[in-house]
Every structure is written in C-alpha cells, then in structure tokens.
Nucleic acid binder design. Structure first.
Lengths: 116, 116
DNA sequence: CTCCATATAAAGATGATCTCAATATAGAGG
DNA sequence: CCTCTATATTGAGATCATCTTTATATGGAG
C-alpha cells in the first residue's frame, strides 16, 4: 500500500467524507506532511471502490457542484489495520538495526579487494 | 521511500553486506514477509549510491563470482531514522482513527441524494 | 546429469502517483 | 469591474520505483 492510499483509508476510518475534505483531513492527520494531489485522490478512490475497501455513500449538490461521499468498508478497515501492524513491525525492525549500529559503532570503510 | 529501499537500508544498518546477503537479511528481518527481487535490489543499490545513502565498501572474489559489499553512510542512517519516525507517526494516526471508528461505530450507508 | 544455492546485471513491463489543465461557482479585495 | 482564492471533480500525459524474466558462472548435492 502506497502512502496516498494509506492516508485516504485513515482519513475515512471514522466517518464518510467527500474527496476535497479527504485532502484536507489527510493533511491535518499527517501534521501537514501529506498533501494529496487531486489526480491521485480520485484515481485512488476509483481503484479502492473496485477493490471493495471503500464504498460510495451519499451525494450532495452544493452550489452547483457535486459532492460525492465515500465510506470505509469493513474490508477497508481490516486492510488499514493490517497495514498499520505491518508498518509497526517494520519500524521496530529498523529501530532495532539502528540501535545495533550505535552499539557497535561503524568502523571505517574496508577499501580494497579480497580474493578468497 | 518504498518498501524494498527501506529494507535495504535497514539490513545494512549494523554492518556492510553484499547484495545476495541483503536479500536473505531483509527476509529474516521482516519475518519472511519481504523477498527482495534481484532486479529491484541492484537497481536500488545503484540509486542509493548516487543519492549518497549507501557506499560501496570492499569487494571479494569467491568461487569466481564477485561479491560487492555495501555500507550505510551517516546520511543513510539519518534517512532511515527519519523514515522510521515518519512511519511511526503514520501508524499512530491510523490507529487513532481506527479507535474512533470503533468508539462511534459506523452507521449504515446513507443512500440517496441531498440537495442543499 | 540435473537441480539448487550462490551472485550480479540488464531489458522490458507494470502501475500508482504526480503534474498540469479544464470546468464551475461564490465571496473577498483592489 | 476584475482578479484571486476556495471549493470540487475529472482527464491526459509523464515519471519512476519496482517487478518479471533472462543471461551468465560455479560448485555441491542427490
């Protein structure tokens, strides 16, 4: 799962939202780090609907503009949950390896060619 | 940063390794979930050397085959550390949103069209 | 004699994401 | 008035990390 997809599912978890609101919610949740591009978002929503992780919910017309709300399916929530667990395991592995690096220090590069 | 890149840096953190050993180390560290493809690995190593996150270390000739060792640079370690922190924040956000979903429950889909 | 493990490299395909542009309305500021 | 910004979605085209497949080479196991 790529980052934009992850944030779309995360933003949709508690309640249904329309596309534009998702862009703002993803930015808020990520502390400003993630800015979903419109092209990415709508393409991803279509894909996620096909995959059954997201469902179209209701539609509103506001000031002549359609507002399409999407909701996370149970499959979508399970997928996000699994992804979060997977990422947590990755983070733990990286931190463990970085700790090992700090403990042993890292000697200077061993230049040259060894023939065995 | 994509997954294969993340695991290459993670596997290289404590000590220098050659390509083939990286494939096995990434699989071990990820609990068997990640299997680096050879094509992905060597392309990524070239790219990471260009970016200064990884350095060629020593070279060995074993049974007529070259063994090229790579080591993580300080920039590479910093990049991995930053990536781990970023991922941790993402995981926390997702878990928070999933908790909110569980607390409020998620009502049935609101079908229909609202015009305001 | 073939299969498997060890090692690296290169070519071509895939596909999510990115950039850019188009469309539409309303309110704010000059 | 006119332009700029915010709201809201859609489509075309490009990018690029990754994936798949193939080639090359050797030695040990069965």
């Amino acid at each position: 799962m790529r980052e934009p997809t992850f944030w779309i599912l995360t933003a949709l978890a508690p309640e249904s939202r329309h596309g534009y609101a998702l862009i703002q919610e993803a930015e808020r949740l990520s502390g400003g780090r993630v800015r979903l591009q419109a092209g990415t978002l709508y393409a991803a929503l279509d894909r996620l609907v096909d995959e059954g992780l997201v469902q179209p919910d209701r539609e509103e017309i506001v000031r002549g503009r359609a507002r399409r709300y999407y909701r996370l399916t149970d499959d979508g929530a399970a997928a996000l949950d699994a992804e979060a667990a997977r990422l947590q395991a990755s983070v733990d592995a990286a931190n463990g390896q970085l700790s090992a690096r700090r403990r042993f220090g890292l000697g200077p590069a061993t230049a040259g060619l060894v023939i065995s």
